[in-house]
């Protein structure tokens, strides 16, 4: 899933302080799971903003909505009939949802309420970590299902660097060395011979180096 973090309230206030009618829009997908922009967070943020504006003596009308997905035309259409009522939208979706909202409602200012962090997984309650950088050419089959692009600090493709100590990365003792994890799992799978193979220089053109990306599937287009 896409993992996001709530923006500091001061930053949010600074973005929306000049508007009188505000819609806070949550998203029922990834940001709900990572507890940054779902229905619950929309409610908490709306209350905090109402209190702030009341203390400031400002009359600001704040409505709440949580859409099934903000990265989908179908669900974004649900607010078309009332979007003109608002001076601005504060979207708690990931960067994709915020942009899709801005594209769809071109004349309504849209502000982000979260910082979109990465594609990752919940390691345990309250802890999310990165697992994929969408490089466009998956090599997990060769690296025992552990991604050195997203999990090695240096994105090394041919084994650990000299900074790997006791299975930990040199940038933090709390961070596993991705190559240690890969080696451990290759061993477990009895595939250590794979480690001897030299991984070729990576083609980064399918990552952002090749410009903004697009997937077009003729077989599913209408």
């Amino acid at each position: 899933m896409i993992v996001a973090e709530k923006k500091p309230i001061e930053e949010i206030i600074d973005q929306v302080k000049d508007f009188q009618k505000l819609l806070i829009a949550g998203c029922n997908e990834c940001v709900t799971v990572c507890e940054a922009g779902g229905k619950k967070e929309v409610g908490i943020l709306a209350s905090a903003l109402r209190m702030y504006f009341m203390n400031e003596g400002k009359k600001v009308e704040i409505d709440e909505v949580t859409l099934e997905r903000q990265c989908d035309h179908e669900y974004l259409e649900e607010i078309r009939d009332r979007i003109d009522k608002y001076d601005a939208v504060l979207s708690l979706a990931c960067g994709v949802g915020v942009q899709f909202m801005a594209e769809k409602y071109f004349s309504t200012p849209v502000f982000p309420g979260v910082n979109t962090c990465f594609m990752g997984a919940a390691e345990e309650r309250g802890v999310w970590s990165e697992r994929c950088q969408a490089c466009g050419q998956c090599i997990l089959g060769e690296t025992a299902g552990i991604c050195p692009i997203s999990r090695c600090a240096k994105r090394l493709l041919n084994g650990p660097c000299g900074g790997s100590t006791k299975g930990k990365c040199e940038i933090s003792k709390d961070l596993d060395c991705a190559w240690q994890l890969i080696l451990d799992r290759l061993k477990e799978l009895d595939r250590l011979d794979d480690y001897e193979k030299i991984m070729p220089i990576k083609d980064w053109s399918t990552e952002r180096a090749g410009g903004p990306r697009k997937v077009v599937r003729e077989d599913v287009r209408l």
Binding site: K202, S205, A209, G211
Partner: peptide, 13 residues
Amino acid sequence: EEITHGDHPQARL
């Protein structure tokens, strides 16, 4: 200029 226009289009930007 864009890397993709050059002779090493696989390079990282």
